[in-house]
């Protein structure tokens, strides 16, 4: 099953490689990993999307907690949560495709950030599956380039991750 782990970690050189090293050394999957400092610059927050049986994810959580620089770990998929990912996609937009592409971006609540006479660069946010759906909705030949951030997640309501 797919799990989203939120991790508070000391903002120190090497913390990221300890975490990614743990995943590779123990053969755990990483679907995506995002990290940036929090409002407290001494701490970073990481979102890791992984998959595995409940036992494996339990071990992942325990192993993460064991790393000295990891402050806290929660499995967001244990409760209600919000998940968002940002994608930038550059598409061919010339001739008759141009209007169609604009319309499609609107349907997905995308924003066109950059325009040339042959292309659009579209910004889209949403769950991973929404971004997938957008890519599926357009013809593969039209896509020039995509870049995705990987998912960030946060608990709903009063669920708060802090120290």
């Amino acid at each position: 099953m797919r799990h989203i782990l939120s991790i508070l970690v000391e903002n120190e050189a090497g913390a990221l490689s300890r975490i990614s090293g743990l995943f590779s050394a123990r053969g755990y999957n990483i679907e995506s990993l995002t990290v940036a400092p929090t409002e407290d610059p001494t701490m970073s927050r990481m979102t890791i999307v992984t998959s595995g049986s409940d036992d494996v994810v339990e071990q992942i959580t325990k192993q993460l907690n064991k790393l000295v620089e990891v402050v806290k770990v929660v499995d967001l998929t244990d409760g209600n949560h919000i998940e968002r990912e940002l994608m930038l996609v550059k598409v061919r937009a010339a001739g008759k495709d141009r209007d169609e592409m604009k319309r499609l971006a609107d349907i997905f609540r995308g924003r066109i950030l950059d325009v040339t006479d042959k292309s659009y660069t579209i910004e889209l946010t949403g769950t991973g599956s929404k971004l997938d759906a957008f890519l599926q909705a357009i013809e593969p030949g039209v896509i020039l380039e995509t870049v995705r951030t990987g998912a960030s997640g946060i608990g709903r309501g009063e669920r708060i991750l802090r120290i």
């Binding site: 036992d55 339990e58 071990q59 325990k62 192993q63 907690n65 064991k66």
Partner: peptide, 11 residues
């Protein structure tokens, strides 16, 4: 002492 030793290989 180490939670990761528990239920690692045997439930």
């Amino acid at each position: 002492i180490d939670p990761s030793s528990i239920s690692k290989r045997v439930k």
